[in-house]
Design a binder for these strands. Sequence first.
DNA 1: CGCAGTCTTGAATCTCCTCAAAAGGCGTGG
DNA 2: CCACGCCTTTTGAGGAGATTCAAGACTGCG
Lengths: 238, 238
Amino acid sequence: MFNRTTLGEVSPVLPIDFLGPVGKSERSPVCKLVAPRTRILLRDFPRSTDFQLQDGCIALFQSLGDGRRQILDILGPGSLLGPSVGSIAECNAETLTFTQLRPVAPLTDPAIGAALKQMLRRSQALATLLGRKTAQEKVASALIDLAERFRRPSKAPEFQKTTFSLYLTRTDLADWLGLTLETVSRCLSRFKRNGLITFSHPEIITIADDKALRLLASGQPSLVPQKSAPDEFCLQSS
Amino acid sequence: MFNRTTLGEVSPVLPIDFLGPVGKSERSPVCKLVAPRTRILLRDFPRSTDFQLQDGCIALFQSLGDGRRQILDILGPGSLLGPSVGSIAECNAETLTFTQLRPVAPLTDPAIGAALKQMLRRSQALATLLGRKTAQEKVASALIDLAERFRRPSKAPEFQKTTFSLYLTRTDLADWLGLTLETVSRCLSRFKRNGLITFSHPEIITIADDKALRLLASGQPSLVPQKSAPDEFCLQSS
DNA sequence: CGCAGTCTTGAATCTCCTCAAAAGGCGTGG
DNA sequence: CCACGCCTTTTGAGGAGATTCAAGACTGCG
């Protein structure tokens, strides 16, 4: 039935809200719980169904022959994963924490298109980050992105400093941002020193100065190119 | 009718095989010929039709506020451009040479999905290039990609060295590969010195040693990540 | 308590960038 | 035809940012 290792398919450790045991023969579309650092195989399963991340975090990545790794995206709750949208490129996926995957009904074409557009937009933003941002800007951008998607319900609703759990290690961040783990660590330390963020545990980050951090992130790609703007052409059918 | 500048909509200079004049009131789906370095507006035209590149070359790019630019893809003959697939992200487009755009009938959803997947695959490959390849590897990768897509019918079919016209300037290459124009120029000079490529005009490149160049390009992303491979999980519904 | 893992920090190195000048191509005009 | 200006490309020298190498600190776990 499985032509790949099935280890880790169902994690030995279950969180409280686990929906119930999953057996091979079961048909009901219950969530699968996957342990941290589990490789998810995207290729060679054209007949597999798609999944949606219920909870947790997954890294999509490509590897170069000599071990260099580039994380292409960090998937959070809501993200889709599967042959319709995920097995597109020559890439692997790995869970970064306990992750719940919910099987979803076959997607309609428009839904697939929408999901693909979302992934493409993020991929393009990553390319701009990788090609044209400095280390500081990269790390700031990453923190803002992660904070928005993995924000924790703040226990003290008064001050509203965003806190989130950084499922990525320094190495993961480095592989995502095209840096080394030392550079990432140095940037984070610097941000901490300068009061942009705070953390006592290395993996629980609090945004202390959201405005300054966003400024440092060098903003999203600007829509009005500063370069010489010669002729313009409206993309319109005759 | 046009709420943007129409300059450059129809180039004043026509190549021999131009299909005929294009008038504003014309309905027939004839090719549009666009002059080099013409900005093509992708946003704000949701009702516009899609186009297919008949001939020529277009750069898709994003700009950062301070003028930094990242080229996200180089489109060649066959590539689609338009609201269905092109106006996705916050990006602009610019022709790099005389370019013919052919209006196409509204795409079916599966066709849009296929086009998006193709774009996503290329975008992810670019991210890996930007994040994890050295300058030399980047330039070598770019040359191989361009050679495959813009190869010229070789006049001497005997030796079969691939020659292609490099529609990109050194600056364009730099903005695509996350480098500076000087670094690009130095890499090209080095490749020339080492016999990997030849060129007398800076924009007509001949691949002299395809094998060595591909080796230098550090290959396509490897499918078997070298990193610690812990558990694996087959993406399959119960 | 001690070990293994990750993270932090420092010093030296290197790749790539910045600044600068010179070379080459191309069109214009004398 | 050649001189001139403009633009892109090439090449060099120096410098900055990120990497590499290495040591030490912190955390969790047996």
